[in-house]
Computed example of a mutant assay.
Amino acid sequence: MAILKAALRKSPVAKDVDMNLLAGVTKGFSGADLTEICQRACKLAIRESIEKEINLEKERQRNGQTAMDSDEPDPVPEIRRDHFEEAMKFARRSVSDNDIRKYEMFAQTLQQSRGFGSQFRFPDQQQQPSQGSGGSGGQGGHRPANNDDDDLYA
C-alpha cells in the first residue's frame, strides 16, 4: 500500500477508492507495476477532464457565449473508482511468485552473511557516567577507538 500512496501522493483520489482493496488485489506486483496502474488511472482522469472542457467550450460557442473562464472548477477533480477499474484492465505482474521466492531467499542469505538479522538487540545497560557524552572524536560509548576508516570527517 505504501507504493500506491507514494505513486499517488500528488494526485487527488476520490474518497470512495478503497486503497486497501487495491493493494490486496495487486499483491505480488512490483513497484513499477503499481506505478503504471496509478499513472494510467491518472491519465484516464486527465483525458476525461480535457474532453469535458472541450465539449463545454463547443457548447458555449454554439450558444454564442464567451470563452471559458479560467476560474471554473475542474470537471474531473479526482481520480475515481472507474478510472482505477479501467486501469486494472491493463494491469500485469512483471514478477512471478517463483522470482519473489528467489529474491526472498537471496535477501535472507545476504542478511545472514552480513551478520544482520532478527537477533540484534541493544544492551539493557545504561551509559556509565565515566564514559561521558560520547562527543565528537572521543571514545565514548558509540565509536570504536582508533578506527579512522569509518570517520568521514577525519
Rank of each mutant, 00 (worst) to 15 (best):
M1V: 05
M1Y: 09
M1C: 03
A2G: 11
I3V: 12
I3S: 07
A6W: 02
A6S: 13
A6E: 13
L8D: 01
L8G: 00
L8F: 05
S11I: 15
S11C: 13
K15N: 06
K15V: 07
D16A: 00
V17F: 01
V17D: 00
D18W: 04
M19R: 07
M19T: 09
L21D: 02
L22P: 06
L22Q: 04
G24L: 02
V25W: 02
T26H: 00
K27C: 04
S30M: 07
L34P: 00
L34R: 03
T35R: 11
T35Q: 11
E36M: 09
E36F: 04
I37R: 02
Q39G: 01
R40M: 11
A41T: 06
A41K: 03
A41E: 03
A41L: 01
C42M: 06
A45P: 01
R47P: 01
R47C: 10
E48V: 07
E48F: 10
E48C: 08
E48H: 15
E48G: 05
S49V: 05
I50E: 07
I50T: 10
E51M: 13
E51W: 08
E53D: 09
I54R: 07
I54T: 12
I54K: 08
I54W: 08
I54N: 06
E59W: 03
E59K: 02
E59M: 07
R60I: 03
R60L: 08
Q61A: 15
Q61T: 13
R62M: 13
R62A: 15
Q65N: 14
T66N: 15
A67L: 15
E72I: 08
P73R: 05
P73D: 12
P73W: 02
D74W: 06
D74E: 14
E78D: 12
I79D: 04
H83V: 00
H83L: 03
F84Q: 04
E85P: 05
E85A: 06
E86C: 03
A87Q: 01
A87M: 06
K89Y: 04
A91D: 08
R92F: 07
R92A: 07
R93E: 00
V95W: 01
S96N: 09
D97A: 12
K102G: 02
Y103N: 07
M105L: 14
A107I: 11
Q108P: 03
Q108G: 05
T109Q: 12
Q111F: 13
R114K: 14
R114E: 10
R114Q: 14
G115P: 00
G115L: 11
G115Q: 11
F116H: 14
F116V: 04
R121M: 13
P123V: 11
P123H: 12
P123D: 14
D124M: 06
Q128E: 12
P129M: 11
S130D: 11
G132T: 13
G132P: 00
G135H: 08
G135S: 09
S136M: 10
G137V: 00
G138Q: 04
G140Q: 04
H142S: 14
R143A: 08
P144Q: 09
A145Q: 13
N146T: 10
D148K: 15
D149L: 15
D151S: 15
L152M: 14
A154H: 03
